[in-house]
Every structure is written in structure tokens, then in C-alpha cells.
Amino acid sequence: MDYEFIIKFLPLYKNAAILTLKIGIIGIIFAIIIGLALTIITFYQVPVLRNITKFYIELSRNTPLLIQLFFIYYGLPKVGISIKAEMCAILGLAFLGGSYMAETFRSGIEAIDVIQKESAYSLGFSKLQTIIYIILPQAIRVSLHGIIANIIFLLKETSVFSAISIMDLMFTAKDLIGIYYNTIEALLMLVLFYLIILLPISIIGILIERKMKYV
């Protein structure tokens, strides 16, 4: 094991991890916003938009992120829109994540029985009060597991960004292997840094879920 190599390139990995996390977080925030918007469209059965939503969800879930990225990265400039690689990555992640989030939120709301709503109405709660105090708190608890799973899944998917020359963790590792042939060290650090990013999220997720159980 070449410890000198590891220490020498640690800062490079650190920067790559920060970039990965930055793109990941922004992309995921957009994905959650898209997901919520689509959930509302589906919930209120908005005509036309509802059909577009359905089409988007199927397209987004049934194509690989790499292909989606290529369409954005190589396709958009062909129709006159040129954006930076980082922006492409964020767009791609939001495009993929939006559908996953939408499906997770939908299942959360659908899991709450209609009669809970009626029971709240019977006590005199208004529509808004019913959503705020009764439906949403239950729906979020139900979908929490799925939301956290989506976040972890999306952060892992960032590893394909190296394909459009973003200096993320994967790109850094491949580059170092290409230059120095220190395959084991480079890959070991790659795995370690992904764990450093993802393990805390998993643990926080488990803690939140445990706290939110109805006991």
C-alpha cells in the first residue's frame, strides 16, 4: 500500500467529494420540488398536465441517467442551448430524481385512508387544517423511508457524471489510475469517500425514522 500516494492525493479527493455533494444536493432539492409539484398535479387530477406528468414519470424512470445526461450534454447545444457541464449534471439528476420523488410522495398520501380525512372534518377541522394537522404528518411518516432511499440512490448515481468530464470522485479516481497505475489505492479512496458521504445520511435517516414511529 502506497501511503504517500494516499496522503498526496487526499486533497484532490476532498475537493471532488465537495463537488459531488454540491451537485448532488442541488439536484436533489430540485428533484424534491419537481416531485411535490407532480404530486399535486396528480392529486388534483389537473387535465393535460396530468398526462404530461405520467409521460415524464415513465420516461424518466425507464431510461438510464447516463443516456439522459448525454441528451442534455450533447443534445441541448445542437438546438442552440449551451450550458455548463455542472448545470447539465444538476439538470440530469433533477430529471431522474423528480419522478422517483413524485412516486414516493404519491404512495405516502395514498396510504392515508379517506376516512381519516372525514374523521377530521367531523370534528370541525377545515380542509387546510385537515391537511396540515392530520394528512401531511401521516403521509410524510409513510414516505420517509422512500425519500431517504431516493436521496441515497441519487447521490450514488452522481458517479456517472465523470462521463461528461465533471471532476467528481469517480473522475478523480479514474484519472489517477490512468496517470499513476495505483489502482488499489485510488479505488480504496474512492470507496472510502463515497462511504463518508453516504453513511451519515443513512444513519440520520434511520434515526429520523425511529423517532417518527408511532410509539
Binding site: 376516512i115 372525514e118 374523521s119 377530521a120 401521516q138 411518516r141
Partner: peptide
């Protein structure tokens, strides 16, 4: 109601 419909949270 028949099935109580307490708020579980």
C-alpha cells in the same frame, strides 16, 4: 366511527 379513526400520530 366503526374503526375508531383516531389520529395515529
Amino acid at each position: 366511527f366503526q374503526n375508531y379513526e383516531l389520529f395515529p400520530h
